[in-house]
Design a protein around this nucleic acid. Structure first.
Lengths: 146, 146
DNA sequence: ATAATTGCAAATGCTTTGCTTGTGA
DNA sequence: TCACAAGCAAAGCATTTGCAATTAT
């Protein structure tokens, strides 16, 4: 059976269908929530935050389901998991272009940025050391200049 | 009372004394172990590894003490804690110059590298966004080129 | 002497999992 | 229909902590 693929899936639910994931009511709610991370680039919810918001929509969604769904979506390359220095994971929808994060250590605010120069440099360093870059993370922990 | 400071402390035990940390038998053992991370740049032990090695020297050292000591040393800026993508912390003695890490995703080997260009770029990016860089981490997850 | 440190075991916080019941395709 | 998903509660894992006993200065 040939699966129909939408190459320009605009929403995460469509991406799930494209990947052949079964769309339960719970998954629809969670996926809808995570879609907000596309427009609001400062929104990187953790499992608790996702669960709280999900329960507000449908109170029968358990935290176990949130954990399972978030893991599933990560494995399907639909969302990214980040572990900043706080001991828990935060999630956001996968974006076309790679970006890094700047974390305001006073407010906790997370700012995304894209910098081609630093992306090229990462690749160059890996190659120089005899490696091929597969994945990478760069986090800048900062305080506001006044 | 004026504390005597050794500005060029060659060993971690001296650094502990300089910072006014009480040197118990257990701490001496742990600190001695962690000193190995200075010469062996690929050695980034986790708490379990430190505890295993510590017990081999003095079997009455508990894992709680390892956790407490490692936290103490981190707060005293004597060692650095790293959290690579594996869900536990790894430690190494603080070095004069900042370095980043390249992790071989197949072997788990951790390689340290220093790159001035990327350090400058980190600072530049933070400033451009209106921030002052306080802390940062860059990890390259790679596979060997053949 | 005495304030700090230890060992032990219990508690924590985040995450995973076994099992039974429920449900999407 | 029926393989897969959900809910619940128990388990897992790294880490922290309360408390009584021990120890460094």
């Amino acid at each position: 059976m040939v699966k129909k693929i939408s190459p320009f899936a605009i929403n995460l639910e469509q991406k799930c269908i494209d990947k052949g994931l079964r769309l339960t009511d719970q998954r629809k709610v969670i996926v809808k929530l995570l879609e907000e991370t596309i427009m609001d680039t400062k929104f990187h919810p953790d499992v608790d935050e996702i669960h709280k918001r999900a329960v507000a929509i449908d109170k029968k969604i358990s935290i176990a389901t949130v954990y399972r769904t978030v893991k599933l979506l990560e494995e399907a390359d639909i969302i990214d998991r980040h572990e900043f220095k706080e001991g828990k994971s935060r999630y956001e929808a996968v974006t076309e272009t790679h970006h890094d994060h700047l974390i305001d250590i006073n407010s906790g605010e997370i700012i995304e940025f894209v910098d081609d120069e630093i992306e090229k440099l990462k690749k160059k360093i890996a190659n120089k050391l005899g490696f091929e870059l597969v994945d990478h993370r760069l986090e800048l922990y900062c305080k506001k200049l006044k």
